[in-house]
Amino acid sequence: MSILLEAKEVSKMFGGLKAVSNFDMTINKGELIGLIGPNGAGKTTAFNLFTGVYQPTTGVINFAGKSLKGMKPSQITQRGIARTFQNIRLFSELSVLDNVKIAYHTHLKYNLAEAVLRVGRYMKEEKRIEEAGRELLKIFKLEDKADEIAKNLPYGAQRRLEIARALATRPQLLLLDEPAAGMNPQETNELMDMIRWIRKEFALSILLIEHDMSLVMGICERIYVLEYGSIIAHGLPEEIKKNPEVIRAYLGGEA
């Protein structure tokens, strides 16, 4: 298997506070990996480092063989990392379809003059992403809500739309930040199936943060456990379940 993302001894300081330290992680092509840990362990910070929202204080992050150092989030998205947010960040006043259309941004091939003059290429490209967008919404059972305003969608549908939108950027690696938060068990089950399916269908690697252990243990092939900004364990789900360090971190007290 070839390595897609590699983080080596990454740390991030906020003032004097160490949010993440000595963080190592490898994600191979096609893998589905879980990142778990107590609240405030630095999981979302890791996502922010991978997507360029933050720059690491020390260490390197390589993606598809190239360093991500100094890149803006938009450049990293163009490289092929997409994400969702823990606190949903949709374009809430826009329609569902427009949310997805924006995500096709980097794949549109017309320039300013062509857009303003509405030449054939503009027309063709707009038509193409409109169709692609509707196609994508169909996968996420949102096709009949395409013209609704995003903020009016039920919570679960908003989470699905966020994933659809992330996929529209055509990533190689998809980062999901608590995709099942706020979902009921049935929705969570559907979500698990969907995550498995999109990984296969879109030939993706997926890294997900999740508190729902049944989901993490159910679908992840490998799991990293983060506590106080450091990886305290990583391995197969069964290994993680039995790891005394992990049990201590989650249940408190001495193992």
């Binding site: 929202v53 938009s74 997409a82 994400r83 947010f85 924006i102 995500a103 941004h105 950027t169």
Partner: peptide, 12 residues
């Protein structure tokens, strides 16, 4: 609508 999300969608 959301600057951080826009950036994450590849919008410079």
């Amino acid at each position: 609508e959301n600057e951080i999300a826009a950036e994450t969608m590849g919008v410079n």
